[in-house]
Amino acid sequence: MAILEIRNVSKFFGGLAANSDVSFEVNEGMIMGLIGPNGAGKTTLFNCITGYYPPSKGEVVFDGKRMNGLQPDKVCKLGMARTWQKVRPLAKMTLLDNVMVGALCRTNSLKVAREMAMEQIGVVRLEHKAGFLAGGLPIGERKKLEVARVLATRPKLLLLDEVMGGLNPAESEDIIKLILDIKAQGKITQMVIEHDMKAIMRISDRIVVLNSGEKLAEGEPQEIVNNPEVVAAYLGTE
């Protein structure tokens, strides 16, 4: 069953079409990969889905509800959470406080929020850093903080915007395991933007390729790798 439907979504900035006429569906429980060269409109599409921009045309349907025009906080309450390409830790708050802010989306009690937060901090294995200020954590741990923080909002759909960007191979491997663990639990559908091709091919059930704002291809990882148009978009043609 499709948890997310993108129907003919376009987003214009003045005369520039950052997304034009993009359509696809994300089925419950799967990992959908979203790839494309720089400037293809991946993050813009995330912003349209999560309420940061209203789409210029088309509609986004999540869990049977039309999302157009809903603010990001409403989107989060409905069960769709996103991380940021450029990490956004709440720098002067501790790791625990950061994750608690996410948990407070579902509860008014600090005590309950603290328990929910510790559970998610356990999932990303950062218990030993819970009392540290978020601003002082290294990049790999800040990325994990973001994942723990969005998990604490109890999402049905998780949108991860380049969670492996800037990480070393060992840290990337940690994140890949984390994403696959979340999938194995079976409760959360994921959509992942990623530049690391090896990683995205490994984790995705399906992949959508964007190029210059348009959908270039969609299919299983193996089909995508062998698609001549995708290869041309990435490597250029003779």
């Binding site: 940061y52 990001p72 989060c76 996103r82 002067k92 802010v101 996410g102």
Partner: peptide, 25 residues
């Protein structure tokens, strides 16, 4: 020592991040 304090400080640290975590600014 309440939800207010956490939400207020989250807004201070990063409004967009706070917004995406379900905080109505």
């Amino acid at each position: 020592n309440s939800k207010l304090g956490y939400y207020f400080q989250a807004i201070r640290e990063d409004q967009d991040a706070a917004h995406s975590l379900g905080i109505n600014l």
